[in-house]
Computed example of a mutant assay.
Amino acid sequence: MRYLVWILRLVIFVIVLLFALKNTAPVDVGLFADHVLSQVPLIVVMLAAFVLGVAFGLLMAATSMLRRRREINRLRRELARVQDALDHPQAASAPVIPETVAPLAPL
């Protein structure tokens, strides 16, 4: 299985390398405020777009992961509190009469 993964990685690397070698033509990149970068290789532009996309995707995923991590920690604390309550039950000093908790309505 490990060899299959390495072969797959090698094939993907070769395909990306051939793609990069075929896309070396210089292009003009227009930025904000009429600023133009001239004669930039197309593969550099594509690589920059890919890196920015990956960074943005990781940023979006990080917020979701942090939210889940907080929820997991909250649930672990609650589980520990309930487990502690089950392990050490409180001894009732006096029996609770239902009328003292909520008065019953007359029939």
Rank of each mutant, 00 (worst) to 15 (best):
L104W: 12
H88A: 12
A20D: 01
M1P: 01
L58I: 11
E71Y: 09
F19V: 07
P106K: 07
L52E: 13
I15P: 00
R77M: 05
L42G: 00
V27H: 00
A20V: 05
S93D: 12
V16L: 08
V54S: 13
L75Y: 06
A94W: 04
N73V: 02
L75T: 09
L47V: 13
A20E: 00
L10K: 05
F13Q: 03
N73Y: 04
D34L: 14
A94M: 08
L104I: 12
E71T: 10
E71L: 13
L42H: 00
G30R: 14
V14C: 06
A20W: 01
R9V: 14
L18D: 04
P26S: 08
I12R: 12
M60V: 14
F19G: 02
L58G: 09
P103Y: 06
A55E: 09
A48K: 09
N23E: 06
V5W: 03
P103Q: 14
P41Y: 01
G30D: 11
V101A: 12
M46H: 04
A62V: 10
V51N: 06
D34S: 15
V14N: 02
R77L: 08
M1I: 02
G53R: 07
V101D: 06
K22Y: 09
R2S: 08
G30F: 05
D84P: 00
P98W: 03
R68P: 01
A61Y: 06
Q90T: 14
V82C: 08
D84W: 05
V44A: 04
L75F: 03
K22F: 02
L21I: 07
R67N: 12
R70M: 05
P89V: 03
L17H: 09
R77H: 07
V5T: 05
L18I: 01
A20L: 05
V27L: 04
I7D: 04
G30C: 06
T63F: 11
P26F: 02
V5Q: 08
P106E: 05
V40I: 15
V96P: 00
V40S: 00
L58V: 09
